[in-house]
Structure formats: C-alpha cells, structure tokens
Simulated scan of single mutants.
Amino acid sequence: MATILPYRGMEPRIDPDAFIAETAVIIGDVEIGPASSIWYGCVLRGDVNAIRVGRNTNVQDGTIVHCNHDPNGDYRETGGGMPTHIGDNITIGHMALIHACKLEDDCFIGMRSVVMDDAVVESRAMVAAGAVVTPGKRVPKHELWAGTPAKLQRQLREEELEYFAYSADQYAKLAASYRS
C-alpha cells in the first residue's frame, strides 16, 4: 500500500479513480484527479505549498514533485510561495524532477528531465528527455525544448502532438488494469 501521509493538518486528496502504486509517497497538500496515475517510487511532497495533479495524467516511476515555501509565512495564510500545478492529460516520464512550476494541459515531459521554479510548460509543448528547464522559463505551445539549459530545438510535428494524447490514454488504461 502506498504511503499517504498528512502534514500539518493537510491530508492528500486522491480521486478514487486514480492509481497510486504501492511504493509511491504522497504527503500533505496534494490533490490527484480521476484516471491519473502515480507510479512506483514517486514522491509528491506537498509540505510547504500545494501540489495539484489534474485528470488522466501519469507521473512515471521515480519522479519527484515538490513546491516552494513562502518566506513570509504559511502559504495557506499568505497565498505566497510557489505551488506546483500539473494539468490534465500529461505524461511525465520516468525519474523527472518537477519543482514549483506549472505544466499546462496536454504537454509532455521527457524522462530524467527537470522543470524548475516558476517555469511554465505550455499546453502541447514538449520537454525532451534529460532537459533542464531553468527557473522562470516558458516552453511555448508546439515547441520541443532540449538540453541543459533547455532551449528551443524545433517545432513539434503533428504526429508527435498526437502521441501526447495516446500516451496519456495508454497510461490511464494501464493504471486501470493495476486497480482491478
């Protein structure tokens, strides 16, 4: 059974239709939407701010998701710091690091990539495997960013964009088979 822990009175809220692998750790102010999946060895630690995961999103094995605190006090009172928002229909590849950023619906995050504080990956954009999106960067719609630090490589092809939806749906089906 997964480790699901409260922190300072904040209980994780997980849709009953989500799949959480046995070795995943979910802590504090975390919400996970329907048909989403958090795979083996993932840690989502909502201790110093909020983490939100939409519907039909897969967070693959070994991924770490965290947020950033508000130096002026408790984020629940000040509204400060940096939460992590992960939208709908997203694939986050194995061993990614997602920290205090925003991933818009229908984007794709490659394996072992890093998306840092206050960065935004727009809808239908892709961060390549191993890329590092540095703080405050914006990865625009329909673009592939790669490298360290990540930079624009090219525009995405239509078949790549179609794969994003396919990947999210395949992981939702796989998660459903694990739940049954």
Results as ranks from 00 to 15, higher is better:
residue 2 A to R: 04
residue 2 A to K: 04
residue 2 A to Y: 02
residue 3 T to Y: 02
residue 6 P to E: 09
residue 7 Y to T: 02
residue 10 M to D: 08
residue 11 E to Y: 03
residue 13 R to I: 11
residue 20 I to P: 00
residue 21 A to C: 05
residue 23 T to R: 11
residue 24 A to P: 01
residue 25 V to S: 10
residue 28 G to I: 00
residue 30 V to Q: 00
residue 30 V to L: 09
residue 31 E to Q: 07
residue 32 I to A: 08
residue 33 G to N: 03
residue 35 A to I: 03
residue 36 S to V: 08
residue 37 S to R: 00
residue 37 S to G: 07
residue 38 I to A: 11
residue 40 Y to H: 15
residue 44 L to M: 08
residue 44 L to C: 06
residue 47 D to T: 08
residue 47 D to K: 01
residue 47 D to Y: 07
residue 48 V to G: 03
residue 49 N to K: 04
residue 52 R to A: 14
residue 54 G to C: 13
residue 58 N to Q: 08
residue 58 N to R: 10
residue 60 Q to D: 10
residue 63 T to K: 05
residue 65 V to E: 02
residue 65 V to F: 11
residue 65 V to Q: 04
residue 67 C to E: 00
residue 67 C to Y: 00
residue 68 N to R: 14
residue 69 H to K: 15
residue 69 H to L: 14
residue 74 D to M: 05
residue 75 Y to M: 05
residue 75 Y to H: 12
residue 76 R to Q: 01
residue 76 R to S: 05
residue 79 G to W: 03
residue 83 P to T: 08
residue 83 P to Y: 13
residue 84 T to Q: 02
residue 84 T to K: 08
residue 87 G to N: 13
residue 87 G to R: 15
residue 88 D to W: 12
residue 90 I to R: 10
residue 92 I to M: 12
residue 95 M to P: 09
residue 95 M to D: 14
residue 95 M to W: 08
residue 98 I to V: 14
residue 102 K to S: 15
residue 103 L to R: 02
residue 104 E to S: 10
residue 105 D to E: 07
residue 105 D to Y: 10
residue 107 C to V: 07
residue 107 C to G: 07
residue 109 I to E: 05
residue 110 G to I: 03
residue 111 M to T: 11
residue 112 R to D: 12
residue 114 V to T: 14
residue 115 V to N: 14
residue 117 D to P: 09
residue 117 D to H: 10
residue 117 D to I: 02
residue 119 A to H: 01
residue 119 A to I: 06
residue 119 A to E: 07
residue 122 E to Y: 00
residue 124 R to G: 15
residue 129 A to Q: 09
residue 131 A to Q: 00
residue 133 V to E: 06
residue 137 K to G: 04
residue 138 R to D: 05
residue 138 R to Q: 12
residue 139 V to Q: 06
residue 139 V to R: 10
residue 141 K to L: 03
residue 142 H to Y: 15
residue 143 E to L: 06
residue 144 L to Y: 09
residue 145 W to N: 11
residue 145 W to C: 02
residue 147 G to N: 01
residue 147 G to S: 02
residue 153 Q to M: 12
residue 154 R to H: 05
residue 155 Q to D: 09
residue 156 L to H: 02
residue 156 L to S: 01
residue 161 L to H: 04
residue 162 E to Y: 04
residue 163 Y to R: 13
residue 164 F to S: 08
residue 164 F to K: 15
residue 168 A to M: 11
residue 172 A to P: 09
residue 172 A to S: 13
residue 173 K to A: 13
residue 173 K to P: 12
residue 174 L to Q: 13
residue 177 S to L: 07
residue 180 S to I: 04
residue 180 S to Q: 15
